[in-house]
Write a protein that binds this DNA or RNA. Structure first.
Length: 408
RNA sequence: CGGGGUGUGGCUCAAUUGGCUAGAGCGUCUGGUUUGGGACCAGAAGGUUGCAGGUUCAAGUCCUGUCACCCCGACCA
């Protein structure tokens, strides 16, 4: 991509209102644009990153047998009356012609349960897992912290359906492992920990995945031996590590980057979703749900990986791998840089090429630091005199010259 | 939803006890000089001060209402 063709510009300033680091850098870097509180436009750089996060999640969910589908945003209010959730205060309500009442889905149990019910009759059809990556709508009384907590946000939600609690438990553990893989691939593996949280009426605990981070809004108690957390909301019930019994817990802040939950028959029974067992008897369907918010992940990555100059994207989710800068005013520099650019992309490498003329070196360096691609390549009169480009990693201080022939 | 704060060119901010034609920087455009860390000079465009009422000779400034945004808290299957 030629930077001069890219929609979205960097900015030196951002409103003093934006305190959160993720909002400041994502807006200044031209990744996102805020439309209103908790509602964002994703510009090309931000969208590329969001898609990479989504794809990592998609691959891992597919790997455990998840079927990707896409459910609607709009749903008839009656479905929420069926489950008694029509009074949730985060629901956005809207009306159709003749007074028909709709809601914007804040989550999709009310859609997925009757949907799967239509195709599932016997134990032969189970277990089954479906997931989607879609936007959710929650009328948060207070949107905050940039894209960490929006009123419209992106979410992957997977739902599993089972003939027995044993089957649910088995899949739940598989999903847990898949989540760990996702965080590892996102570069968050070392600081993202399984955390016990409130389980609601049907199971003692649910599990969250918390990325340990100063700015996290959740407080967890952390067992350093097992790398397991306990959410503050249940610390009164659970004062020691559930895995090893260690009571020497450390208080830490975390960003909730995932949540897995055993729903049991909470929703299937509301919709009368049963299956026939081997004896031909009706049995309740057991369900689990498993959520990760790619948009929140993107904000978390900025909170975790940045310095005072800008963002530092892990290679797995960076919008491009290389940031190629052409410095100076000589035509030859731009001609050579263009050749290098074309060569790299012909090899399938993702390159953002800053081809702007009349822009000072300082400005290009500052933009590159802000945007935070993993590797910066500089082409200038100086480097061309050595038949080289300068290579610098965003997370390292030193740069080195690399022969153009070696680079390609 | 409670508390606190803020709304002024595209962006970041000024504007004295209410007082003259609402200023500056950034960005944008034109011309010129620069070209390895947001460089410089000259010129230009761009505003019914969030919205609606009110007080006053006079309102960006005061009052009432309303909307929006930010922070703290509550909330967050």
């Amino acid at each position: 991509m030629h930077y001069s063709q890219l929609f979205g510009k960097t900015s030196k300033t951002v409103s003093a209102d934006e305190e959160s680091v993720n909002a400041q850098y994502l807006i200044r870097g031209g990744f996102v644009n805020k439309q209103m509180a908790g509602v964002y436009n994703y510009l090309p750089l931000g969208l590329r990153t969001l898609k990479k996060i989504q794809n990592i999640i998609r691959e891992e969910m597919t790997a455990i047998g998840g079927n990707e589908i896409l459910m609607p945003t709009l749903t008839q209010e009656e479905s929420y009356k069926t489950t008694g959730r029509d009074t949730m205060d985060v629901l956005f309500h809207t009306e159709g012609p003749g007074g028909a009442k709709y809601v914007l889905n804040p989550t999709h149990e009310e859609v997925v349960t009757p949907l799967v019910q239509k195709y599932t009759f016997s134990y032969n059809d189970l277990p089954l897992a479906v997931f989607q990556i879609q936007n959710k709508y929650r009328n948060e009384p207070r949107a905050k912290s940039g894209i960490l907590r929006g009123r419209e946000f992106n979410m992957k939600d997977l739902y599993s359906f089972h003939a027995s609690e044993e089957s649910l438990n088995e899949f739940y553990e598989i999903a847990k492992k898949a989540y760990h893989k996702v965080y590892a691939r996102l570069g968050l593996g070392d600081i993202t920990v399984l955390t016990y949280a409130s389980g609601g009426a049907f199971s003692r605990y649910s599990h969250e995945f918390q990325t340990l981070c100063e700015v996290g809004e959740d407080t967890i108690y952390f067992c350093e031996k097992c790398r397991i957390g306990i959410n503050k909301e249940i610390i009164a019930d659970q004062t020691s590590c559930p895995e090893c019994g260690n009571a020497d817990l450390v208080e830490k802040n975390g960003i909730e980057v995932g949540n897995i939950f055993k729903l049991m028959a909470r929703f299937s029974s509301a919709f009368g979703f049963k299956y026939l067992d081997a004896e031909g008897k009706e049995q309740p369907v057991e369900m689990g749900c498993y959520g990760i918010g790619p948009s929140r992940i993107m904000g978390t990555l900025v909170e975790v990986f940045h310095d005072n100059k800008g963002m530092k994207w892990p290679e797995s989710v960076a919008p491009f791998k290389y940031h190629l800068l052409a410095l100076g005013k000589e035509d030859e520099t731009f001609v050579e840089a263009e050749k290098i650019y074309k060569n790299l992309i012909s090899k399938g490498v993702e390159v953002l090429y800053d081809d702007r003329r009349g822009v000072t070196a300082g400005e290009k360096f500052a933009d590159a630091d802000l945007i935070g691609l993993p590797i910066r390549l500089v082409v200038s009169k100086k480097t061309l005199a050595e038949d080289s480009v300068e290579l610098k990693r965003r997370d390292k201080a030193d740069a080195s010259l690399v022969k153009i022939s070696d680079l390609l």
